[in-house]
Simulated assay, not measured.
Amino acid sequence: MASSNESTLKNKRFLSEEKKDMISGYLYIAPFFLIFAVIGLYPSLFSIFLAFQKWNGLGPMEFVGLRNFFVVLEDPLFWKSLYNTVIIGLMGTAPQLIVGIIIAFLLNLTFLRFKNFFRVTIFMPYITSMVAVALIFSVLFSNHESSLANYVLGVFGFDPVNWATSEWGTKIAISIMVFWRWIGYNTIIYLAGLQSISNDLYEAATIDGASKFQQLIYITMPMLKPFIVLTVFFSTVGALQLFAEPTIFLGTGAFTRDEAMTVVMYLYRDAFRLQSFGTASATAVILLFIIIICSAINTLATSGFGRKKGEN
């Protein structure tokens, strides 16, 4: 009897220690979930709730059902902003993914000297202040004939462009700004992917007689697939949420012109300039579905990348 009582007390003591460890673990991770609930989950749920309300931010709310969605979808400016978002996203995002892989290959060459210097240099635009970016590109793409961009066009015999006022001039300037700012981010990810590939694979392929091109197609690109999928996903989401670059480039007139108004700029204008939080929230919900659809398309398009025939 005494031994059985001692074993029971040991079990209770063990369970109590286990519960204490479990409680302490939950307490350690609780701050993250509390902060996420306050600044992440609650605003998202409240935005979905506002999508069905008419509210100016001060007065009482009025339930309007799906009216906000119809107002947004029937607004030509919304479709113009969506068109601008897609065009600028393609012009600024697709080239940086391709060029990022090429630069990563160059930075990974064994005979390249000053590798750390070039890696830091290519990553600098990503950590550069947006104020500095605005100053740089306002000078590069000034409407004056003496600006650097117009000077380069003049060298090739083209007429000067009013970059801040013309339809395509604005889109090209913002796309170049997006490309310049994010090329280093994707390059570093691809470089990390290249360095994670074992040299044994290349040595075995060389012994088997595989050429450099065959090694690129059958070893490098399939092994880079997770990194490519990651950058394509992040770039797609970032392109659809484009806000800072066009706002900075166009300045105070960004929300009164439609040459480069994006979807996020459209909902920002509705919320904080027109005090129409209902339509702004409806736009946010529509944008969420657009991001989900585009992400699903990207996932399906890249799911077979690097997969052998007959492989499930």
Rank of each mutant, 00 (worst) to 15 (best):
Lys212Phe: 12
Gln214Pro: 15
Gln215Met: 14
Leu216Asn: 10
Leu216Phe: 07
Ile217Thr: 14
Ile219Tyr: 11
Ile219Pro: 15
Ile219Arg: 14
Met221Gly: 06
Met221Tyr: 13
Pro222Ala: 11
Pro222Val: 06
Met223Val: 06
Met223Gly: 09
Met223Pro: 11
Met223His: 05
Leu224Pro: 10
Leu224Met: 11
Leu224Tyr: 05
Lys225His: 11
Pro226Cys: 09
Pro226Tyr: 03
Phe227Leu: 07
Phe227Thr: 08
Phe227Glu: 12
Phe227Met: 06
Phe227Ile: 03
Ile228Lys: 10
Val229His: 06
Leu230Asp: 03
Val232Arg: 03
Val232Ala: 09
Phe233Leu: 07
Phe234Pro: 01
Ser235Arg: 06
Thr236Gln: 12
Thr236Glu: 14
Val237Pro: 09
Val237His: 05
Gly238Phe: 00
Ala239Pro: 11
Ala239Lys: 06
Leu240Lys: 03
Gln241Phe: 01
Gln241Cys: 03
Leu242Glu: 06
Phe243Asn: 01
Ala244His: 04
Ala244Val: 08
Glu245Leu: 07
Pro246His: 00
Pro246Arg: 00
Thr247Ser: 09
Phe249Glu: 05
Leu250Ile: 02
Leu250Trp: 01
Gly251Arg: 00
Gly251Trp: 01
Gly251Tyr: 01
Thr252Ile: 01
Thr252Trp: 00
Thr252Asp: 09
Thr252Arg: 06
Ala254Asn: 08
Ala254Lys: 01
Ala254Ser: 09
Ala254Ile: 02
Thr256Val: 02
Thr256Gly: 07
Thr256Phe: 00
Arg257Phe: 02
Arg257Leu: 07
Asp258Arg: 02
Asp258Trp: 01
Asp258Asn: 05
Asp258Lys: 04
Glu259Asp: 03
Ala260Val: 06
Met261Asp: 07
Met261Phe: 01
Met261Cys: 07
Thr262Val: 04
Val263Ile: 09
Val264Leu: 03
Met265Lys: 04
Met265Leu: 10
Leu267Glu: 14
Tyr268Arg: 10
Phe272Pro: 13
Arg273His: 13
Leu274Phe: 14
Leu274Tyr: 13
Gln275Cys: 12
Gln275Asn: 15
Ser276His: 15
Ser276Asp: 15
Phe277Lys: 06
Gly278Thr: 11
Ala280Asn: 12
Ser281Trp: 07
Ser281Pro: 08
Ala284Ser: 09
Val285Ser: 00
Ile286His: 07
Ile286Phe: 13
Leu287Ser: 05
Leu288Ser: 13
Ile290Asp: 03
Ile290Asn: 07
Ile291Tyr: 06
Ile292Gln: 08
Ile293His: 02
